[in-house]
Structures are given as C-alpha cells and as structure tokens.
Design a protein around this nucleic acid. Structure first.
Lengths: 189, 189
DNA sequence: TTGAAAAAGTGATATTTGTCACACCGTCTT
DNA sequence: AAGACGGTGTGACAAATATCACTTTTTCAA
C-alpha cells in the first residue's frame, strides 16, 4: 500500500511540494482499483465518474465509429492521467471506451473530489493546470505530425520518442493510433 | 478603451466572477497591441514573451517544415487565447510563427504576469485551468477527425462547426489547416 | 481604370494508402 | 496432438490524395 502512496506523491512532487499532512489529506480522496488485461474500465454510453492515475499497467482510450471501426485516441501507462475528459468534466456519458491492454492498477478521483482538491489546496490546482497544459501541448504535437508527416515518419517518430510503449502494444494497435491500416504499417517496417 | 476592458472582463466572467477591484488589478497586467493584416507577431526562432488574448481580428499559428512548406496549426479569432505555448512556458524560442490574417487587436500577458495572476487570485488559476482543459479537448477532437474522417468529411465538419471562420480565411489556408492540398480541397467543394 | 498579384479551379498523372483475400506462425486450450 | 485464435506479412487491386502545369477569376493598389 505504501508504494502506491509513494508513487502518487513522487509524481505530484515532481511539480509542486507538499507537507506530509497535505499529501495524506489529498491521498484520502482517491480510491484504488485494479483491472485485468482486456477488461473495460468504461465504454461508450456509460457515465465517466473518475479521472484515473495509472500506477502500473497500460490502458487505451478508443472511439468506435458508425462502421464499428475502432480508432485509438491515446495510450496511458505509468504516471499518466487518463479519462474521457468531456464526459468526466460535464458528468455526461462517454463517447469513448477505456480498456486495459495489460493488468492495470489505478488511483481514481471523482470530479467532486478533483474540484475539492483544487479549491482547497491551490498548489493542486496549479499541478493540474501544468498537467493540462502539457497534455494540450502533446496533442498539438500529434496534430502537427498528421499535418507534416507521412505514415512512415509518424511511425519512426513513435519508435524514437516512445520506444517503451511501442514494445508493449500489438502493431495493429499502433497502426490505429498512427491513423494507418494494419497492412500499411506492416509494409512500412 | 473601456470596450477593451469590457471585452476581457466579460470573457473572464463567463467562467468566474470578479469584483471591480480584482478585475482592475488583473487588467493592469495586460498590455494592448495592434497589428495590421499580414503582420508577423512572432516568427520561428524568436522568443515568445506573451500569451495573446484576441480582442478583434484573426491570427494563425503556423509551422514551416524543412521543405519550406507551411502547415497551419490553429486559428484564433475574438475571445481566443493564442501563443506558441511550448516557447511561452519554457521561455525558449518559437518553432512556430504567429501571423495576422486581418487587422488584429490583442491584449498581451507575459509569463511572469500570468504566474502572478494565478498565484495571487486563485480564481484566475481556475480560469486558466478551464481554458486549458477546453483547449486540450479541442485538440483531441481534431486528432479524432484525422483518425476517423476523410478530407471531405473534415471540410464539412468545419463548415458546420466553424462557418464564421471559414468565411474569413482563404481556401488555401483552410486546406493547410485540414491537412490536404489546395487542389484537393478545391475538388471537394 | 488598369495591371499585377493573389486566390481559385482543372486536367493529367504519380504516389500513398486502403481494402480484400489469403498464408503463416506461435500460443493456448481441450 | 489438434484445432482455434490472435497477431502478422504480403500480393493484387481500388480509392484517395498529391503534384505539376496551366487557366481563370478576384482583389487591390498605383
């Protein structure tokens, strides 16, 4: 249990510093959950009650279009925060699914607790602002890669920038994340 | 001048509420700047000292690749915040250029002032967190459009969701923003 | 008013990528 | 050991999009 607390604390303290009391109080607002490989955390049409902090394992956020084709929006591994942010913040139903690629341990934070943390400890609002900005910048970089790069270049970019992630996912998933067909990715290699 | 103050205040108060004193103090941290059509606000390689709040007009954030080809990352019109966020937050040099498509009036906020506002008035940190989340969600939607949609569908999506913007920019720019060639967009219409 | 520059349309062709069909391989279960 | 299944590779062909060259239209300033 203490390694879980440490993991969250170390993560938050990369950006802000907290007293023992502050951290203990913060930690009380999270719940722990464990999921097995291939298990669905939530799926399309369901309410999204939490934002998830990944302690270990790997999850993927996906969208299924009218033709039942799956599109992978993002992966989240250790130290990442993930959820369907639209559904989470507006307390509405998800347009995405969140699924485990590996056995995964997560800390879960409800919107009410998220807002309570932000309102009570300003440093936490600051922390989440920084996280959100980083997320925004990451998304902008991905958009730029769609605008400027061929499928091959996007693949090579993944290999150099996220080699650990590439090792852990089947190539068919990587293809979907990169926005190319499985077959095209196979020929690119 | 008062219409400028009102514009900013109305914008911020859509999300949080402020006393007259609070707003006046906040407003003092901004500087006003006016640019002409086609003027560069900053370009690749320059430091980015401000985040810009667009009062009126239209600007575009762009990236130029090794082949000197321009790619349009985002547009910002009235009530939008824009800058090269990487360069702004890290006080480093820009990889993007910010250019005026129309005569544009903006309010400018330095990083130091941004941080001072956030640190002093928690509501402002809350405001910027909400803005950042909205930006992140917008980027994720755009990524999803690259994953799921053809050029034609992306174009139609723009027409229905940002008709005002489409009217104000040349089709060649719209093409670049959508990630297709000018000629392909022309044939799609 | 007119001429230059910018923006937009179009035909011909090349390139990239998707789709479908099928083969191959390893793992897991029974 | 046999069969089922997921993941992957590949050939043939179709569809989408890029590129190049050129024309037409629009805009705007001298």
């Amino acid at each position: 249990m203490n390694d879980i607390k440490d993991k969250l604390r170390t993560h938050i303290e990369k950006m802000i510093s907290l007293s023992d009391d502050e951290f203990s109080w913060i930690y009380e607002h999270f719940t722990f959950q464990e999921f097995k490989k291939n298990e669905l955390i939530f799926e399309e049409g369901q309410p999204v009650k939490h934002v998830y902090f990944v302690l270990s394992g790997l999850v993927v956020l996906s969208y299924t279009d009218r033709d039942a084709k799956q599109h992978l929006i993002s992966f989240a591994m250790e130290d990442w925060w993930e959820t369907d942010f639209v559904a989470f913040y507006s307390k509405s139903r998800s347009t995405f699914a969140l699924k485990c690629i590996e056995n995964t341990k997560m800390l879960c934070l409800t919107l009410d607790h998220f807002e309570k943390l932000c309102a009570t400890i300003q440093k936490m609002e600051h922390f989440f602002l920084k996280k959100s900005i980083a997320g925004h910048i990451g998304s902008q970089q991905r958009i730029l890669s769609f605008l400027t790069s061929s499928a091959k270049q996007r693949y090579e970019h993944m290999i150099t920038n996220h080699p650990a992630l590439v090792q852990r996912i089947p190539k068919s998933m990587l293809a979907s994340y990169l926005g190319v067909s499985r077959e095209t990715l196979s020929r690119i290699l």
